[in-house]
Design a protein around this nucleic acid. Structure first.
Length: 518
RNA sequence: GCGGGAGUAGCUCAAUUGGUAGAGCGUCAGCCUUCCAAGCUGAAUGUCGUGGGUUCGAGCCCCAUCUCCCGCUCCA
């Protein structure tokens, strides 16, 4: 298979109205993207597919490891939460890695990554400290200089250099000492102010993940829905991260949409639920057409895991091979056993008991009921990127077939296709447009909930097919010379170009069947 | 943040030593057209990414800035 060109995919995305640069007429704004008409439909269809298969019909009826149907309830929480939420979650601390800038080389380093060569004796005698980064060219270079200055050298962290000696630190890529700035917090959360007065007491943050809203409302959901553990809470919504380097089209954006499940269970069952969700989520992406070697499930090493998941049963990523990551992969969804870290943190910070009383556990009592057990549930989190999903689908669906008169097409799954069908008269005369308009009106009435049905009478039939190919429309119905007498139309398949004749009264049935085959 | 490359019509790209901005495709209208971007006629669309500067004159030269792509870095 020839490697797909990201440039061509981006050109198509722009040309056909899938993705636009945000604020484009003002020169764009780094890390933000808008969806055009077709992109909006595609994104909505993917979100809707997730909603159907997670919330409305969880796992499409598959039983969980406990042998029961999977329980799931929906939630919709705010983008701006109480600032304490982010202290409890660790985002305020974790997001503010102090950074050090070099005034001379303009390089920026993580403060806790910077090491210095210092004399073994401890006294530099007015000579510089030689700062470096491990495994960077600066290491050998600085070591050589340090050894020349001091003889025996030792390594210490930059943070251990006394503040009054800061001016004698030679930056890793600098020629003169004293070029490094004080370490500065570099918060990846977007900051805003609540209330019109906008004082420092009114600081709030745009959420960097939707998950915390779920944890914070965990108790309310329990108290109002009669759900029992194990069960999940599902939410879709925007999140914001002030990324250092937005990159790769929409892949790393500063504003993005997540589709998250927080699945709550007893600690003893966490490992099997983790495996269940990992495999279920992988299969879900496959069911939408991301198949074969472009999609992998990758288990993280323990060292790779986030702070909240270090002790858990595991973390996996569903990863897709994008043209810009090839031969590597980029993350679509992370499935993590977050242990009971988050609920524990909120319990502590909010001073609220978030334990669940499980009446199905504990010793069996003489009357046949159980004593019950109170515990802080563990959480399995399948967290998917909606925008990344859309991008992966576009990349996977994009096909160039030079043997076709219109070489570019999007082989999108019918369930996800932004346009569900199109009706054309073969030519714009002989009564054909009247028949096609009628058929089109009928299909619109029947399918508007799923997506638009197009009708086009202009230009040649080939051009109209080509337009639908680029929009990813799976089926075109053409009224031709036989239609009036035989009451049949042709159906043209997007992926093969093959045609068959079906009765005009069977078109809706045909399309419904094709769209439901998923 | 560093290094490299690039910004001209919706898309892909031209424009000689600095001299009033073009093509193909697409779009729209009309004709034509009986199954795959066909043909004919016509039309619309650009502050040449943005802001300064040099010059009689700047798409082109200079400075700044923004955005995109690639490689590092980052991705809790």
């Amino acid at each position: 298979m020839t490697k797909k060109s990201m440039d061509k995919i981006m050109a198509l995305a722009k040309r056909r109205g899938f993705v636009f640069q945000a604020s484009e007429i003002y020169g764009g704004i780094n890390g933000f993207w808008d969806y055009g008409p077709l992109g909006t439909l595609l994104k909505r269809n993917l979100r809707e597919a997730w909603w159907q298969d997670v919330v409305l019909f969880p796992c499409r009826g598959a039983l969980g490891p406990n042998g029961e149907p999977v329980r799931m309830v929906p939630l919709d929480t705010t983008i701006i939460q109480h600032p304490k939420v982010w202290e409890a979650s660790g985002h305020v601390a974790g997001f503010s890695d102090p950074m050090v800038d070099c005034r001379e080389s303009k390089a920026r380093y993580r403060f806790d990554h910077l090491l210095v060569f210092a004399p073994a004796s401890g006294d530099t005698q007015g000579k510089p400290y030689f700062a470096y980064l491990t495994d960077s060219p600066s290491e050998a270079k600085q070591k050589k200089k340090a050894e020349k200055a001091f003889g025996d050298v030792i390594t210490i962290a930059l943070s251990e250099v006394p503040k009054d000696a800061w001016a004698r630190v030679l930056g890793p890529d600098a020629e003169k000492v004293g070029s490094l700035t004080e370490p500065r917090a570099f918060n990846l959360m977007f900051k805003t102010y609540v209330g019109a007065t906008a004082g420092e007491d009114d600081v709030a943050y745009l959420r960097p993940e939707t998950a915390q809203g779920i944890f914070v409302q965990f108790k309310n959901v329990l108290d109002t829905t009669r759900v029992k553990l194990p069960f999940g809470i599902a939410q879709t919504g925007k999140s914001f991260r002030n990324e250092v380097t937005p990159r790769n089209f929409t892949f790393r954006s500063r504003e993005f949409e997540q589709m998250e499940i927080e699945f709550f269970c007893h600690e003893s069952e966490a490992a099997e639920w983790y495996r269940f969700w990992r495999d279920t989520r992988m299969a879900w992406w496959q069911s939408l057409g991301l198949k074969g070697e472009n999609l992998v499930l990758r288990e993280h090493d323990r060292e790779e895991r986030a702070h909240y998941a270090k002790e858990g049963a595991g973390v996996s990523d569903v990863e897709f091979r994008f043209p810009f990551t090839d031969p590597g992969f980029g993350e679509l969804e992370g499935i993590a056993h977050r242990t009971n870290f988050d609920l524990g943190q909120h319990q502590k910070f909010a001073r609220t008991n978030l334990e669940f009383f499980d009446s199905d556990r504990g010793e069996l009592l003489p009357n046949g009921s159980r004593k019950g057990e109170k515990y802080l549930p563990h959480v399995i989190e399948p967290s998917a990127g909606l925008d990344r999903g859309v991008l992966a689908l576009l990349c996977e669906a994009y096909t160039e077939d030079p043997s076709r008169p219109s070489p570019e097409l999007l082989r999108l799954h019918p369930r996800l296709a932004p346009v569900k069908g199109a009706v054309f008269p073969l030519v714009n005369k002989d009564g054909m447009p009247e028949i096609s308009e009628k058929l089109h009106a009928e299909l619109v009435r029947k399918f508007y909930r799923l997506g638009p049905i197009e009708h086009d009478v202009k230009q040649s039939i080939g051009k109209r097919y080509a337009r639908m190919d680029e929009a990813g429309c799976p089926y075109c119905f053409t009224v031709d010379g036989e239609t009036a007498s035989a009451q049949t139309v042709t159906v043209r398949d997007r992926d093969t170009g093959a045609q068959e004749r079906i009765g005009i009264d069977r078109v809706a049935e045909f399309l419904a069947q094709k769209l439901e085959q998923s």
